[in-house]
Amino acid sequence: MKLLAAGKRLRSPRRYAALGLMMVPGLLYLLINNYLPMFGVIIAFKDFNYTKGIFGSDWIGFKNFEYLFKTSDALLITRNTILYNAAFICLNLIVPTGVAIMLNEVRKRWLSRMYQTVILLPYLISMVIVGYLVYAMLSADTGFLGRTILPMLGLPDISWYSEPRYWPYILTAVHIWISAGSLSVIYLASIIGIDPEYYEAAMIDGAGKWQQIRRITIPLLAPVITIMTLLQIGRIFYSDFGLFYQVPLNAGALQSTTNVIDTYVYRALMTLGDVGMSSAAGVYQSLVGFVLVLVSNFVVRKLNKDHALF
């Protein structure tokens, strides 16, 4: 009876007014920072002219999109972007989760902290520097791999920067190297947030470590992992520009396996600096991501309502 009354009180408009008020600063920021500038999307469909302004410029339909589909590169960059992102999403599911669970198992606290600090290091290094470090490993004259490691194994040196076929592996490795640390910190925070009572109960039931991980940690981590994955799916047509431009050092010979939509657009518009065409690329990328997210969110909702994004 008391609960019912409380339930009614809980659903009173005043309560939700308080909650709504809490959202105001954040929503206001999104309005200014994101929604106001979205009028810029119409530039993608206009022949932008400085004198006429954004709204006064002439509509030109999809002309600004043409260069994205103009050559045989269109297929290539779409394929590369999707395959890389698919690989990244899969690996980001497995590696950081594993690392986070292991970090949580480390009993000596100072050691755990040291590991946490060290694995975050790659995330702090700018992509330009990462490019230098990779180059230090691979360069033809002075590379570490070519001068020290490969000869030790009795293998011939490879001229890495002119062999496109190795780069899917190199870039994937570099991506994981950079992102694993930061993602595992996020997952670790969620693992720490799990109520210890669950584990205590499991231990009383005689469950071993492995069982605890399988039956408690992973299921309770699932919502976070699902969200992170959905967020990545929404950005499947985007890619980390630095990774694909700086790390292969913009080597033309590698373009068949390193050119993605972002780098293509960058190279395409380097000389033109055209506002409309770059806006068109953004619209195209968001549109695909948008559709994919709607679909996957729908699937997730079917499986488990609570795990969905919206």
């Binding site: 999104l30 009028f39 810029g40 954004i54 929404g234």
Partner: peptide, 19 residues
């Protein structure tokens, strides 16, 4: 609805000039 409003900002970007 509000979740979607928040999430949508990750999908669509008005571009640099308008911002």
């Amino acid at each position: 609805f509000w979740s979607f409003v928040v999430f949508f900002t990750m999908l669509l970007n008005g571009g640099l000039v308008p911002q």
